[in-house]
Design a protein around this nucleic acid. Structure first.
Lengths: 157, 157
DNA sequence: CCTTGACATGAAGTTGACTTCAACTTCAAC
DNA sequence: GTTGAAGTTGAAGTCAACTTCATGTCAAGG
């Protein structure tokens, strides 16, 4: 428990896989914490790596940084998260994933049922008009069959 | 087949469920076409509604507007898309959806296998380190277990 | 003819999660 | 002591898909 085993931003970047700029951003957003040395440079405790692993995992699950901040607050502060901690948290994540999967499956099945008709009718086809826009008097703001999350395309990777 | 049954932007907006501003944007992006009347106002052919239904459906599948432009180019220009057209296109979409579903399931299963360990280890845990960052000599640019598409959180809905 | 509402335009704003930039300062090695 | 790499900052830029705004034009009913 030396006080000297703290990491500079470059080393944390290399070990966590996050860019240094991302680390700075996370610090500014209160997701991670750093102290400063005499010259004003960031020094991270070693446990920031676990915290960053958590951030990466949560972001893979589809949580926003705001949500991740909330989740991080639920983590035990001083001890390594144990099985019970992890189970409680993963329950939450699993629910999120299950929702996402279900939404995609509904969409895929709608697609299947649409193949026969070749319709793409604005009025009748559940696939192109999941909200039945135009059927009632209340206007739908846009497609909401899928959450916004699931409606974007992969950029490159 | 009168020449007068063309629609103003407001009516297209009402019937398609897209905002007028979105229609203007789609026109500027070359996704839809409009002629102008004597006063410079947009007049849409009736078939723009089918095109918009297609755009909505494709965007639900997760295609970007760029991709949708490409898909639209594959549609028959003058006739209503028939079953064969639709089958060919939906094949493409289904593949996309299947990929997305598979990615989410891998993630969920990784979560399950992680529950037992309570690890979240940067080095060993496949969930927090899907790319095995730090194991090899080549740096990974970020989490890519999921496409970027699947890593964002729903905004509200 | 006049008003009111729909439509026109280009520019700028929005959101989230960062990255990039410019202009320094500090650290570590030699 | 010198130098080059690594670190610092706030501000601004990026991306996608739009929306909002300010300002001006047009169309239709009475």
């Amino acid at each position: 428990m030396h006080t000297m085993d703290m990491l500079g931003v470059g080393e944390v970047a290399a070990r966590s896989g996050f860019a240094a700029s991302a680390l700075r951003y996370y610090e500014s957003q209160g997701l991670i914490h750093a102290v400063r040395n005499s010259g004003g440079q960031r020094r991270f405790e070693r446990n920031v790596l676990r915290r960053l692993a958590f951030i990466r995992a949560a972001s893979n699950v589809g949580l926003s940084l705001d949500e991740i901040r909330v989740e991080l607050a639920k983590l035990p502060d001083n001890r390594t998260p144990n099985k019970a901690d992890w189970e409680r948290i993963s329950q939450h994540w699993r629910g999120r994933l299950d929702q996402q999967i279900a939404a995609l499956e509904r969409l895929r099945d709608g697609l299947t049922s649409c193949i026969g008709c070749g319709c793409l009718s604005l009025q009748r086809c559940a696939f192109s008009n999941p909200n039945d826009v135009g059927a009632g008097s209340d206007r739908a703001p846009g497609a909401t069959l899928l959450p916004a999350l699931l409606r974007r395309a992969p950029t490159k990777a």
